[in-house]
Computed example of a mutant assay.
Amino acid sequence: MDATTDGSGLGRVVVGADGSPSARTAAMWGAQEAVLRGGGLFLVHATDIDAMSRFLSRAEIDQSRQAGRELLDRTADEVTARYPGLNIVKELGDGPPAGSLRRAAALTGTIVVGHRGIGGFSSLLLGSVGLEVAASATTPAVVVRGAAEPAEAGAVLAAIRDIDDLGCARAAAHEATLRKVTLRLLNIWSTAPYAGVRAALRNGTERNAREHVHALSGVAERLREEFPELTLDADGEKSRSVPGALVDASRHADLLVAGGRRSPGYLGPTLGRTTLGLLQHAHCPVELIPRYGPGHGSTA
């Protein structure tokens, strides 16, 4: 078996472990995902010693690595208690967390992180590692949100904007197939109350709606051909807030899958407004599929 894939043909599941309650929830979510995929779980802890080595004594470096090994052992024991047959690989690195997770995921793996780390800023809606992973990952990345023991909703939700989200929709279809649940494609388009003359606004809105419906229908058709056994619903609606409508819909989903669109930033990769809103407020785990990620069919 290829080192970067598991028995399902999907990538390996790589989870970041840092000792926080959020990371523990992510580890359990990742373990369940690994079981569904028929593969193993990779637990990664990054000490970030490389960035601080010049300021640390040899004893402090050894102590940090030992603490990391013990953390990985505890996390693995907790996972094994719930999933006794799951193969777990533990990986301790000296680099930064996001980079260590990307290396472990290789070309096709799925990175799973909690929405909050062990940092001291309790007001943050998304931890710094989760933010960096989401903004820079070139493979699928999941930020685990919602309750630690969520009730199953029986649906995977895919946020679809246009035909270039076909790769995202395919990923969501695979996830729904693994879970044996319904896939719901949801296309939300924004209203523009401040635009132009009333007649022009009405005509533009109608044209915009037709374009969105056409794109949604095209994606749904392709999926029905590729996944004939999958129960698929496709819905389109307009809203004053696209992120708000998707967050509300996430209340009734086990997983929300979206294309990882990014806005160009002066200080490196940044997330688009809708993507960031989902990662900060969704009521279920959010999986981002990179627009340019390998093997996912996106063309834009």
Rank of each mutant, 00 (worst) to 15 (best):
M1K: 01
V143H: 02
S217T: 14
L185Q: 08
H45T: 11
W189M: 12
L72N: 06
G30H: 01
A169R: 03
L288Y: 09
E149N: 11
A169W: 07
T299M: 05
A245G: 11
Q63V: 04
A59F: 07
R224F: 05
G117A: 03
H281D: 14
I289R: 09
M52Y: 14
R202Y: 09
V142K: 05
R54Y: 09
V112F: 11
S122Y: 01
L101E: 07
V113S: 08
G259H: 05
T25D: 10
H281E: 15
L271P: 13
S123G: 11
G127Q: 09
G9H: 06
S298G: 15
D18W: 01
N87Y: 13
V112G: 10
N208L: 14
P228H: 02
L36N: 12
V129D: 02
E221R: 10
L256I: 15
Q66P: 00
L92V: 12
Y266M: 12
T4I: 10
L107E: 11
A258T: 14
A135P: 00
G146Y: 01
S263L: 15
D2H: 01
A158H: 01
G7W: 06
G19V: 08
T299W: 11
V219M: 00
L86I: 13
S136F: 01
L71C: 03
V181H: 05
G16T: 04
E229K: 04
F227V: 05
A176P: 13
H174N: 15
A151S: 07
H214P: 00
H212I: 01
P269S: 15
A300W: 07
S217E: 15
T80Y: 00
T182Q: 11
G272W: 06
G11A: 07
G19Q: 07
Q280V: 09
L41N: 07
G127E: 11
S8G: 14
H212C: 09
E211C: 02
E221A: 10
A51W: 10
K90L: 10
R222T: 15
G11Y: 04
A159K: 06
N187Y: 08
A137Q: 00
A169H: 08
A159E: 09
I61M: 14
A105S: 13
A137R: 03
H281Q: 13
R291I: 13
V242K: 08
H296W: 08
S100F: 00
S239N: 14
D233V: 10
S100D: 12
R145S: 06
L36Q: 12
E60M: 14
A27V: 02
L185K: 07
R74A: 15
L279A: 13
L86D: 09
E152D: 05
L86P: 12
L166V: 11
R207E: 14
V112K: 03
S22F: 06
T270Y: 08
A176I: 13
K180H: 15
A148K: 04
R261T: 14
H45G: 10
Y194E: 06
T25P: 00
R273V: 15
H252K: 10
L178S: 03
S22N: 10
G19E: 01
A137V: 09
S64A: 13
T47F: 08
S241W: 07
M1P: 02
D162W: 00
L278K: 00
A134K: 04
A172I: 05
G30Y: 04
